[in-house]
């Protein structure tokens, strides 16, 4: 990191991380495993926190948050398989979102949908690593389509948050 972090910024990231974790837990609570028809499909509420970070703090911070969130969930839940999935998915999603958020004609909608689509690509890759078969690829198109819908929902939820932070004069970046 080239930037020198102030206590204020660290606190901010910590709050965002806590938010991401809270949202992960909330999601697990709202949508217990197996309720959605496709393996690996989730709403991805924690992505709200990642998106907020991406738009109001920065890219590297968003990546940091995504990785830390996966790590903390691993430590709390002890599910290594889930960790590999969320790590690979998270990194892929981050790459896509970084590219998309810079584009002039792409809004938070596009970023969120693109991120969700790439998240499923990462997950399928993780699944291929896990099962060591290519067969898992048949899920890819369905998973992408479903996760795009989820991405749109997430964008709807994220926009007011980013807008509100922005109206406050965006204290996150000062």
């Amino acid at each position: 990191m080239k930037k020198h972090w102030t206590a204020f910024q660290i606190t901010k990231l910590a709050i965002l991380l806590a938010l991401a974790l809270m949202l992960s837990i909330l999601e697990a609570w709202l949508l217990p495993k197996g309720i959605l028809p496709l393996p690996g499909l989730k709403l991805g509420l924690a992505n709200i926190a990642i998106l907020v970070t991406l738009y109001t703090v920065g890219k590297k911070e968003a990546l940091l948050l995504a990785i830390l969130r996966s790590l903390v969930v691993l430590v709390l839940g002890g599910n290594f398989v889930g960790f590999v999935f969320s790590m690979l998915g998270g990194v892929w999603a981050w790459c896509a979102m970084c590219l998309l958020c810079e584009r002039k004609h792409v809004s938070i909608f596009g970023t969120s949908i693109g991120g969700a689509a790439c998240h499923s690509i990462g997950q399928i890759m993780a699944a291929m690593l896990m099962t060591r078969t290519v067969y898992v690829l048949v899920y890819l198109p369905y998973l992408i389509l479903a996760s795009c819908a989820m991405g749109a929902v997430i964008a709807f939820l994220t926009i007011p948050v980013v807008r509100a932070l922005d109206h406050l004069g965006n204290p996150v970046i000062q």
Binding site: Y55, T56, V57, G58, K59, L100, C101, E102, R103, K104, H105, V106, S107, I108, F109, G110, I113, G114, A117, I144, L145, C148, I159, V162, R163, D166, G169, N170, V172, I173, Q174
Partner: peptide, 29 residues
């Protein structure tokens, strides 16, 4: 990147559904 506009507000384009979004969705479909 958006956050570098220190002390300034985010451009409103981020909040509006834009042409790029449509293009992206069509591409994915």
């Amino acid at each position: 990147t958006p956050h570098q506009a220190c002390g300034q507000h985010l451009p409103p384009r981020h909040f509006r559904f834009a042409s790029g979004d449509v293009f992206l969705i069509i591409a994915i479909l």
